[in-house]
Every structure is written in C-alpha cells, then in structure tokens.
Write a protein that binds this DNA or RNA. Structure first.
Lengths: 217, 217
DNA sequence: AAGTGGTCTAGACCACACC
DNA sequence: GTGTGGTCTAGACCACTTC
C-alpha cells in the first residue's frame, strides 16, 4: 500500500509475484497472498492468474454503503420509529411489471403503501410489490406490527438485490404524505430482490426532504 | 451460508467455533477461518474474540457502489466526454470552510467550477475546493485538458474520503448550467478527501436530471 | 484465567490463462 | 507447456474479551 501510495508502483505497473515478495519481506507466501488479496478487494490491485498483479489502472473508488432496515436507520438517529400501512391490495401485475420482471399475468401480487415515521415526522414513503407466488405466507402475516421489510428479512432465504439511487421531485400524493412541498427534491431508492431467479419484492422508497446517505471509503 | 439461508442458524444464534466446524467439515481450521471471515465481511456474521461467531442480527445490506471518475462514467454510457472549467479562483477559506475542516484562515484554496458533458449534453456540474497548502503543484497544472479529479487521482497519495448522497432542487444557476428546469430534483454527491489528516479537496457534484446510481448486493 | 478469533508459517497441489 | 495466483493443510503463537 505504501508503494502504491508514494507512486513507486504506479497505476498499470506489474508488481513482483507472491514468491518474490515473500522473500523480500521475509514472510510466508500465504501472508503475501492475504495482503494482496485484501488490496485487490479494496480495488487497489488487479490480479489475474498467469498475468500477474498490477496496480489498478482505474482508481474506481468503491464505497460500501450500508442499507439498514428503516427502523434501525430511524432509531440510530435517536428517534422513535413507527409506521402505517396506508393501503394494501392484492392484484395481478400490470403489464409494465410483467415485462420488467418476466412475471406471468396470473402471478398474484401484494401491493403495500407504507409511511415510515421518525418520532411523529414523516421519514420515508414506501411503495412495495411482493410476489405471493414465492412467499404466500406473507399474505396472512400481521404486517401492522412487523413491517413487510422485516418480515421478509426474517422469513426469506438469502437473496440478492439491486439498488438504484436517484432524485425525484415530489408528486402531489408524495408531498401530502411526506408533508413537504410539491416538487421538493426527494432522495429515492428503488430496490428489487430475488431469491434464486424469482423476483420476491420490488420497493420504491422515497425519503423526506433533507435525507442523506453517508459513506466512507 | 446454506445454514443461514435455510434458517438452521437463525439471526442472533451463536454458531460453533472454528475448531469444531473444522472437525465437522473435515478441513483445516484456516479454511473455516477464511470462510467465516468472508461471510463476516459480507455482513452475514458478527465475530468477536472469546464471544464467538453469531449470525448477524441486523441484516444490514452492504452495497458496494463504485464511484468512477466522471469521464469513465460518461464513456461507459457510450457517450463522448468533455468538460469546461467555467470559473476558477484562488482565495482564502470562508469561515464556514474554516470551521468545517479546521483550516487556518491563511490556507490558500483553489476553487473550481466545472461542467461535465456527455456528448453535447450537460452531465454534471461540479464545485470543488482544493487545499493548495497540501497540493501546491495543482495551481500550475493545466486543468483544461486533464480534469482536477484525474490530476488529483494521479498525483496524490492514497487518501480516504467521505461521500454523502442526497437530492437537491436545482438552483437558478444550476438550472442554467445543466439546462434543466429550476427546482428539478438533482442527484447530489458531496465528497471530501483527506490525505492523512489534511483535507485535500471538497467536491459538490450535481448531476443532471435523470441520473441514477445502480449497485448490486 | 481461559477460550475465542486473528494471524502467521512452510509446504503442497490445483486451475487458469497466456505463451 | 508453464508460470501465475487460488486454495488448502497442520501446526503454532498471539490478542482480545469475557468470565
């Protein structure tokens, strides 16, 4: 790391192999491997078998953002968390949802519209679609006490997800619910979650004005 | 991972120690250690000496967002990148900057206002402060051909940074530069970068409407 | 004090990717 | 074919934390 930092090893440079570095530093090859692997995980090195290890050309900064359950997020800010399910409907996917996720027209979906609060203030507004074909049990769960998000986290196997962060102007409906001006800039997260190849849930989360997401590199 | 996924090990559960798992799986302890460490890095396990390893209670989703140099971001979208330095000033820190970063009133700063374009469209508007006390060389660099961001990446030792993502309504000036409506919701990134304990640069980056940042978990 | 994870060693074999 | 990183082993000592 020091050699990258002070430019003795410059971006694109091929650095010595593990065996050579182990000799130079007087340690075992496994130790060098661990160090180089950690640096590669951080995006500072590019490693390839046979080709060797190079200092990363694209200093792509990889930031790890932690995306906590909303309740924890609110509580971490020292506020009391509460939420209300404003609306709830079981219905078939719209044609947009069908093509976006490759769902059959007969797939049963549960739609939930939820307001999350910090103390008594609106914190975020959530629109969520849940695939009842994959998690039918949630249809009978008491989602007024345990949020759908937490229910899914507890009752669903590990999953992979995709997040999209953007900014949106508050619609009339959103401004009413979030108690802000229409057109206010709102930080928005779209999340889709799959188990295996089945989409479980799609969420659009609109945070009240002033929200920000912080991360370190 | 399978045992976490199928809930045989539930959130909060204390799982067997490394020695025991190594016996069970018929492998060396180092192999178990590597596996558990990887899972802990992914946020699935919490590990503490003496206390043991537990399945993470807070399934804090850790998403790794890649924050590329803007030029690469634009080029990855298949557009031609260009930029213009709209304004440039050397001056002392405002009192706000002084207290925010603990700068002396005499610290020389370079302020840059830059418009980044994708093809001929505005892509992002950047306001940047550079600490000339730490990187004096940049004052004489040709920042019209190589952006300040890339100059810093190439000429500065490794640094740590802090990112804040938020949403802002376009000011009158921003709407002119980004060619959008005043008040449009703009995705905004604030970044501060340090080398050791010295702040090098603070950037406020305002993306044109429609920008989104995507990441997988 | 004791038990846990954290790290290291010396050696070995494997798999991939380039020649 | 061959050299690189990827992974594993068996053993050892250390450091942190909780008991």
């Amino acid at each position: 790391m020091r050699r990258i930092s002070d430019k003795r090893w410059q971006p694109g440079d091929l650095i010595p192999g593990e065996v050579e570095l182990a000799e130079e530093f007087g340690c075992a090859r496994a130790t060098v491997n661990r160090a180089l692997r950690d640096l590669a995980d951080d995006g500072l090195l590019d490693r390839k078998r046979k080709a060797g290890t190079r200092v990363a050309l694209n200093p792509v900064r990889k930031a790890t953002v932690e995306i906590p359950v909303i309740r924890q997020d609110v509580e971490a800010r020292g506020k009391a968390y509460s939420f209300d399910v404003l609306d709830r409907k079981e219905l078939a996917p719209t044609s947009i949802l069908q093509q976006q996720y490759g769902l059959a027209a007969s797939t049963p979906l549960l739609g939930l519209w939820t307001l999350h609060r910090a103390d008594t203030n609106a914190f975020a507004y959530e629109e969520r679609w849940i695939n009842l074909a994959v998690v039918p049990d949630i249809a009978t769960a008491d989602l007024a006490t345990l949020s759908a998000n937490e229910w899914l986290v507890r009752n669903t196997p590990l999953s992979r997800g995709e997040f999209t962060f953007s900014a949106c102007n508050a619609t009339a409906a959103e401004s009413r619910v979030l108690n802000c001006d229409q057109g206010a800039a709102l930080f928005t997260v779209n999340r889709t979650t799959w188990v295996m190849d089945d989409p479980i849930t799609a969420v659009r989360l609109v945070y009240a004005p002033g929200f920000s997401m912080k991360t370190m590199v």
